[in-house]
Design a protein around this nucleic acid. Structure first.
Lengths: 126, 126
DNA sequence: TCTCTTGGTTACGAATTGGTACCTACTGGT
DNA sequence: ACCAGTAGGTACCAATTCGTAACCAAGAGA
């Protein structure tokens, strides 16, 4: 049973790295917000995502920063001002997110249509 | 602190449902394999993903089946034969996965280029 | 008869995850 | 003087997750 090769097939899947990033619980909300509302401060982002804890947000932002998807601008004013914005690389995901949203929207529409059709059939069957 | 609206903004993000699906640890490997190698049996899939436990694979397959992304054909022969294949809806993700792979590949190339350039600069600096 | 096969299910247990509470340092408002 | 807010860091605690191992059915081959 024991597989000789540890799992080198991950190399054959370049999207794996990206998905591992997008996979985080709140990641898409964050990217979506930064994409649609532009650069934002920590508290602004936290308020907008609504439900995320500061710890999670920090951790996600650090991960995304480390991946080069967003930039962190720290101004050591009093009170401190930290602004997050998408990098060029971060914006390259816009296309992916868009096609994802497109498919999601299509499914939503299809499901709604199927639901209303079933409802109509149910009504006709009475 | 308490947010008035529970978090209805999820509604504004139709890709969220999809990402919640793709987010699973092995999901992309499974979809990728089914996409590139066609319909496969359980054991075949398990061997190909190499590292996944039967439990995980089962759970992922059930989830994907429930989402209508793949179909499960069960033949009650002895030994049983279960074949999994992508549905039409499952194939609609091909485009997303492709653009994802495209971006991933581009980054890989860019990173490799940046690495070799840095190496060259280091060499020149000596 | 004993074992191997396929495609699972279930129980157990360890590890990771993520939330809550509390801490910083500094200032502005009351 | 005290509380709120800004941008977190840290400790602790509960819940979830995921792997491992054991088990199942029923036929085929040794």
């Amino acid at each position: 049973m024991a597989d000789a090769e540890p799992r080198k097939e991950s190399a054959s899947c370049p999207m794996d790295f990206i998905l591992r990033m997008l996979m985080g619980p709140w990641t898409t909300y964050i990217l979506y917000n930064l994409k649609s509302h532009g650069p934002q401060r920590f508290g602004e982002l936290k308020r907008r995502v609504a439900g995320i804890s500061a710890k999670m947000l920090t951790e996600r932002l650090r991960t995304l920063e480390g991946a080069g998807l967003l930039r962190r601008d720290y101004e050591a004013t009093i009170p401190p001002k930290v602004t997050y914005s998408l990098t060029k690389r971060g914006h390259e995901l816009d296309g992916v997110l868009n096609s994802l949203a497109e498919v999601g929207l299509r499914w939503e529409t299809e499901d709604a249509a199927a639901r209303s059709q079933r409802a109509a059939e149910l009504k006709a069957a009475e």
